[in-house]
């Protein structure tokens, strides 16, 4: 079921294009399909949940809902940096569960045309986040790595 869903998402990108939210983690430009995104909020006080993998930073309160947040940096195996006014939490909904993802900075929403899609990440790339990247997009002379949100959150 899950796989079907993922396939569908990438397929529609290949055929119809779509919109992605662009953001930076460690100065690399990433994208998430906006259909998964419910909101983007500034950094919030995070309550630590002990004894979980270190990339789970804890839980935050979004209007009475307790939402776990994960650090994209930690997930990609990068060192943490201090949070500043640019740090954002992208709240996505995966399998009906809301999850926050902490990123360095959000840039913009961008339309993706089928022609912009280069390929899936192949050999030779050395980025630690590669295992979570489903598609590489090239437009306006920039490389954007489209993340597989299911892999990012669930694995």
């Amino acid at each position: 079921m899950e796989e079907v869903l993922i396939d569908q998402v990438t397929d529609t990108f290949a055929e119809d294009g779509g919109e992605i939210l662009l953001f930076f983690v460690n100065e690399v430009l990433y994208g998430i399909d906006i259909r998964f995104i419910t909101e983007i909020i500034g950094i919030q006080p995070i309550t630590i949940v002990p004894l979980v993998p270190s990339y789970i930073k804890g839980v935050i309160n979004i209007r009475g809902k307790v939402v776990p947040v994960i650090s994209a940096r930690r997930k990609f195996g990068l060192p943490e940096i201090d949070y500043d006014e640019k740090t954002c939490i992208i709240v996505v909904e995966v399998n009906e569960t809301p999850v926050g993802i902490i990123v360095d900075m959000v840039r913009a929403v961008q339309s993706v045309m089928p022609g912009d899609i280069c390929s899936s990440p192949g050999a030779g790339t050395v980025n630690p986040s590669d295992q979570y990247v489903s598609t590489i997009i090239e437009s306006d002379g920039e490389i954007k790595l489209l993340l597989d949100i299911h892999k990012l959150v669930l694995e």
């Binding site: 979980v52 993998p53 789970i56 839980v59 307790v66 776990p68 569960t97 669930l154």
Partner: peptide, 8 residues
């Protein structure tokens, strides 16, 4: 806890 945390 959300399902995500329950896994741990």
């Amino acid at each position: 806890f959300s399902a995500m945390l329950n896994r741990y």
